[in-house]
Amino acid sequence: MTPLRLTVGYVPGVTPAKWARTWAERHPEVPLRLHAVAAAVAADALRTGTIDVALLRPPADTPGLAVITLYQETTVVVVPTDHLLSAADEVTVADLDEQPILTPLDDVVGWVPCPGVQVDHRPETTKDATELVAAGLGALIVPQSLARLYHRRDLTYRPIADAPTCPVALAVPAGRQPELVEEFIGIVRGRKPGSSRGQAQSAPKRTAREKTLAKQAARAASGKVARRPGRAGRGGR
């Protein structure tokens, strides 16, 4: 019999460690496997069953998937440390008008039309594009987490104040989900241990007086008369 386990795919820049720790605390009997996947193939890996859950930047087309947006990332521009744009704390789209912009084939920003002047050469990956930025061939627009992931000492990045943000989402195959997948979704969304959607709320705790009254009512229902200790009834004299 194949042992139970859950495989969670995640794209570069997404950090699932805190959710994996919570899973290990709540379900030590069910291993959770973290599987790094390229952004371009994450949705397909989910559709083919290579992974059970995906933490990704949602593609424009998501047939067959149920997608839950988790948070929004700041969009930044990556430039050499001695670049003119590095002098400001943040930049605007207008600041990029005359800048050569590199757009890798695995671009996850999907900004159309992209600002600046597009460089004809499209590097294979965001990491490759970072190397070209360091070589002075152009600037790169990415989510902030990717700028941090591929950080170099000779590069820096600045937020683009008026740029659209980059969403990060949890995706699963559309339709009814297995219990383990539902449990992971609950962890990611902050659900407390033991709680579930549709579960009836537990009854509130009763006060001491309410407990006493309940006991007296139970005795009365069974035909017993409650007497105060130390006092005999009139019939006992």
Rank of each mutant, 00 (worst) to 15 (best):
E179I: 04
G136A: 05
R206F: 07
P143G: 13
A54Y: 00
I185L: 11
A221T: 10
A36V: 02
P113S: 06
K205W: 14
A36D: 01
L105G: 05
L70F: 04
L146Y: 14
P123N: 11
A54N: 03
R176S: 14
P16K: 15
A43E: 06
V112M: 07
K18F: 07
G13K: 14
G175H: 07
V133P: 02
D61L: 11
L102A: 08
G175N: 04
V91D: 04
G136I: 08
A208S: 13
P143L: 10
A171K: 02
L146F: 11
V53A: 09
V30G: 04
I160E: 02
I101Y: 00
A54S: 14
V91E: 05
P123S: 14
R122H: 15
A39R: 00
G9W: 00
E25C: 01
T62D: 02
T2F: 05
I141R: 13
V133A: 06
V112T: 14
K192L: 10
D97P: 00
G175E: 07
I68T: 15
G110F: 00
P63L: 03
A232V: 13
A20C: 02
D82W: 09
R33H: 05
T92G: 05
T75H: 06
I160D: 02
G190Q: 06
L155T: 11
T212C: 00
A226D: 12
E131C: 02
S86L: 01
P16V: 11
Q99A: 12
T81I: 10
H151E: 15
P115W: 15
P193G: 09
R191H: 03
A134C: 08
